[in-house]
Design a protein around this nucleic acid. Structure first.
Lengths: 345, 345
DNA sequence: ATTAGCACTCTTATATGCGGAGTGCTAAAA
DNA sequence: TTTTAGCACTCCGCATATAAGAGTGCTAAT
């Protein structure tokens, strides 16, 4: 629903939110009046505040405290009030300087970017990496571990590695496996996963006529491999200890709740997935995350790409009272940074 | 240094420790007297307690509180007093029933075992997995990612996968790479890492005479690969939220410290490494861990094996006031369980 | 429409008092 | 000589009382 506010009301709301973000304390009419952005008396401010409270943008923790912004207020703030400016080049330089991935490998780059992101934003940061089904096929290989156990190794175009144990009845020696993988690599090269599935079925039909047992086996094995939603995406979480710095989470039971959410990951993966399907920085405030335990928390996230394709999302979780004006551009920059790093190769 | 105690003193110490483990409250003379294990008056107990305090086995948090065991006391308790009994079969059954790894793959088994361990012990659990250098060579493969980037994939005999990005000057097509890996698999099969290194150097000498450029390249690449202490071991941590259940860690700053230690992992890896070199269950109490932030914490850990070879360690971290009599056998059983699961294949 | 003034509410910090738990010491009992 | 009862003492934890401060809503005057 639309929110219509007079300029004055906007100014008051803006002042309250920025002040509250800075200090964490409820903001009173006196304080706002003194800020001088409006040059009216506290009493006038109080009237405006009462109005804002009626619309559901402010609440008081108790009768004689100042006002605190509601979720709706943050939403409105993020949508219409906040001024996000780009980072200065010196800030960008700073971030890049802090970034020292141990290698140029996909996972290392991703994790290190996440680390820096959490450091810069002083929030918990998360990165989702694509499940195999999201990426393009690059390479498959089979390794014989024992008589009836074969390790399938899949490499995506992005250089990520997925693997899966396969149990087989009959025995394959490594040579046969090499043959199988060569064949599969040949026919599946560069396909997206959807196409891989189709291709396999199609090949199975035609191979049936050739009666080539080994290749048929290769196809069967790979079909099982690609059929199961085997290889789920991962989620890296960095800087979870920043939670301890926020007074709103000091209660032990609350902390436990939050850390449980981090430990479980499922809900967060789902949430980040939504971002991955979107474009640009997205902000989920409190209940918008659809995660009960994430009340009073905000997710700011953005997808990242490689060679134009979205691979996953990177973002931060912090209190709803986070410094949006700073965090949003940082997330944005970091998402671009990771994209650049991945493409640079 | 040796600790000599009369039977009576031992009984008192034992009672205090078990009581403190159970409740977390300092134990007074009255309580012990009432327990009835000794049937003397509180006054007598007080005398004994004063003695124990003098030796450094007990302390009082303040003048008029009961006594609390010191680190030394726990050490003595673990070494000489505690009665660890094996788990009952029903308990063992219970653990096994809870264990449902999503696959029989090494990492999944390890992680799931860790999860169950933390659940049973109500402590944070950790598992270290072997770095590549600890295991035996099984398989190597190269995947061409782009003109000058090659992905090396290593599989250990245990079925663990390690990978490393290699940058090359000249271009190799996938066929050449296949050739190279075939060759390497041939000569390195089943060797331990130490032998792999030697073998590579040895081969380089002899190949030099053959002037086979591709194979020489293969050797060079693999030497880089195996020379660098590239592929470090990992550490899985599960159930870190159990920390919140212990009153001794309620202070925020303390919690932050502990979680930082979990996040960093390095120190913990080092610590678990010590265990890996040992045999059977090891207990590190407080400062014995050599980690400053782990004061008031105890690590109980044991190595696990596959086919007789030690791969890593599994263990739990909890307050020094943990239930050793329960935790020690649980860790022991779990280590054997994981060993069994890995061998069962 | 705005604002000064004021009574009112609620929180937070500080002081105060008191019961309880546990001790150490002493002197008596075993 | 060892054990124990008795007692004075200490310190914590808890509840209660009190005061200061911050902020509000309302009213009446500007």
């Amino acid at each position: 629903m639309e929110i219509e506010l007079s300029n004055r009301a906007k100014t008051v709301l803006f002042t309250i939110i920025t002040d509250f973000i800075r200090t964490g304390d409820p903001v009173g009419s006196r304080t706002i009046s003194k800020r001088g952005a409006l040059d009216v008396s506290p009493a006038t401010i109080r009237n405006i505040m009462a109005d804002l409270e009626e619309i559901g943008l402010l609440v008081q923790p108790h009768t004689s405290a100042g006002r605190v912004p509601t979720e709706r207020a943050y939403r409105f703030y993020v949508d219409s009030l906040v001024k996000v400016s780009d980072l200065t080049t010196s800030e960008e330089r700073m971030i890049e300087k802090n970034l020292n991935p141990p290698s140029r490998e996909f996972k290392d780059v991703v994790r290190e970017t996440s680390r820096v992101l959490s450091e810069m934003s002083r929030c918990v940061s998360m990165v989702s990496t694509p499940g195999f089904s999201e990426t393009q096929f690059k390479y498959i290989d089979f390794v014989r571990l024992s008589e009836n156990r074969i390790l399938a190794i899949l490499v995506s175009k992005t250089g990520m590695i997925y693997n899966k144990l396969i149990r087989v009845e009959e025995e394959f020696n490594q040579e046969k496996l090499a043959w199988m993988s060569r064949y599969l690599n040949d026919i599946l090269s560069e396909l997206t996963l959807k196409d891989v599935r189709r291709k396999i079925i199609q090949e199975m039909r035609s191979e049936k006529n050739l009666y080539d047992n080994i290749l048929m086996n290769a196809l069967k094995m790979s079909r099982n491999l690609f059929d199961a939603e085997i290889i789920d995406d991962e989620l890296f979480i960095e800087g979870s200890t920043y939670i301890f710095d926020y007074p709103e989470f000091t209660e032990i039971s609350r902390m436990k709740e939050i850390f449980k959410t981090f430990e479980n990951k499922n809900n967060l993966i789902k949430l980040l997935d939504k971002v991955t399907r979107a474009d640009g920085v997205k902000v989920y405030i409190g209940s918008e995350t659809n995660i009960q335990t994430m009340r009073d928390c905000t997710l700011v996230a953005s997808p990242y790409r490689k060679e134009g394709n979205i691979l996953g999302s990177i973002g931060v979780i912090g209190p709803t009272r986070m410094d949006y004006a700073k965090v949003i551009p940082i997330v944005d920059f970091t998402a671009h940074l990771i994209t650049r790093l991945l493409d640079e190769e």
